[in-house]
Design a protein around this nucleic acid. Sequence first.
DNA 1: GAGTTTGAAACT
DNA 2: CAGTTTCAAACTC
Length: 672
Amino acid sequence: MENSSQKKKKFSTSQIETPTPKSKFEDSPVFNFINNLSPIESVRTISTAHTFNSLSFTSPPVFTSPHPTLHRDSRFFRCHNSVDRFKALESLDVSISKEVAVADVDLNKDATLEEEEEEETSSELPQILKSHSQNPEHGEGDNDSSSQDVRVRFLKILDAPEENDTSGRRRLMSDSAELLVFRSPNDSEAFQCLVDTISSSERRFCAGVKSTEQHDVTKDVQAKGSSNDSEPLVVVPNQPVPSLHRGSMRRRCLDFEVPGKRKKDIADVQQTVCDNKAESSSKYVAPGIGLHLNAIALASRDSKINVIHECSPPGEIQTSISGSNTPVRSQDTVRETLDQGETEPGEGSAVEEAPKELLFEELNPGSLRKKPRFEQAGEGDSCKRCNCKKSKCLKLYCECFAAGVYCIEPCSCVDCFNKPIHEDTVLATRKQIESRNPLAFAPKVIRNSDFIMDTSSDDVSKTPASARHKRGCNCKKSNCLKKYCECFQSGVGCSVNCRCEGCKNAFGRKDAHLLAIMESKQEEDHEAYEKRTAKVQENKEAGQNLSSDQPSTPLPPYRHLVVHQPFLSKNRLPPTHFFLGAGSSSFKKPDSDLKNAKKPHKTVTEEKREIMPEILSNTPITTIKAISPNSKRVSPPQLGSSESGSILVKKSNGRKLILRSIPAFPSLNPNQ
DNA sequence: GAGTTTGAAACT
DNA sequence: CAGTTTCAAACTC
């Protein structure tokens, strides 16, 4: 381990401060030619071919992730992207350099596509490498090769140092854990992200490392990108990306997902790249593991989803639905809106109803999270630095650490260990934290379509609530109107996962989320109810006696409302999961149903107590309206089950809710 | 810029 | 797992 660490450090240093063979390549005419290639063209090629997988957009963790194998492989391929390209160029005529460039992108794609596979087979890579290194013909210049072939080619090249120079290459291999995983983008948006990533990374890189050579390259690339600002599909990825992500840069700012800035900001960002003044903004990074989640999220989205490039806080996903009529606004815009609508978000001045635009922003969670100081419009330095005094920047308290990035000069931290120099410590700490909480570095905000609750409620993800904080907030005094609230800070509304009190989140109140969930189920429930009613009626007509354990009479939708109204009136948080579960298939007939079915009618209060004993201890709701606005009925628990009673057991943030549905009306069965 | 407030993270 | 402490950002003055 020790040797390995030293090796890594050594490699890192060499990569950063000393020109590697790669640098020589970069100086070569061929390399320059590639750099001069129109990025747009390359991208278009890619885009047209639809060769990228959205998953490829995952971002790598800034720190070597606790999942070394994954990074190793990813890095492996990535790292040698440029190498491979160079090699290909060497063997091919310059006239086809463009094609090679495209192929390079494809290579990235392939690497990404097989990321999962790589994770599983990382241990097998060495063998693959060897086996394929035997075949010098393999892959070289074969732009059409399958992903596997491509990877093999990479591996081969890597494993054949004798073919190219490369002590550095070997080091790369040994230092795989340090590589950043720059998965190839899947689409234009992805490229945008990548561009942003590059920019941010580069800035960070510049801030922390001496690498003028790469700076120049980066500038060129970025200049190109900015020139094509109108073209979301900047092909920058095809450009010196690989080189940019080598060495210190990838180490310093493992840009995962790169929730970077918006397109319109890209130009500015690019202009400021390598500008030390922009160092501070170099921390655009998505969280390590979180990146993977983000990637998944992105992958799950269709091509209409645009990635909004913003300096996003850890774990956030900035996306928008391009198809929406609502113009996508930058976070700044959102902020402005917020500021306008909520001049003084102080207590009492809560924005009861977020503007529609704001609500839309839920879909487009321009993250407000932790950007205040750096991301104010026009500031130019979009990301923040930490100011840790006691945590040594090795705890999640530290925003940099939490974001998976190393602290940099602009940070005001004291006794900081979150630096490449202490990589081992950082990684060890990170592992420790992740061992405690595997999702510690995961995105905190998850988009709606990707929103997965612990409750495993598929329904929730379908609600219009959109992006939500993964774990929810726990605000007690801020009313979710200040940045103390992670949901608010992230620019997302509170959700059923929140345990906040007096939620007035301008991006979406918790109760609103509940309402949305309820409404989303109403239609479904209504249909189920009708079916059920029809069935019961049919049975009646047939003169059949209903079994005692079945409700002889379907529960009218309003019945549930009746039961819960008092509950709600007491400012009790509606059983989130009750509603979630209501009407859903999640309701299951418990053995105790018979008991309940046989019990005589209870008063509402009695039922309430019995039905949701645990719910009573939940966070009180702020308004009844949210629960049953306009006297809308609450979804009845039925769906496919005619049982009179049901128990819904769901988990939410570790809390278990055992919800027992209301017993149906006494059986009409005369036998009882 | 210092002090306070806040809530997440960490600890017990 | 709940309660407490620690911590640093957000906020206020």
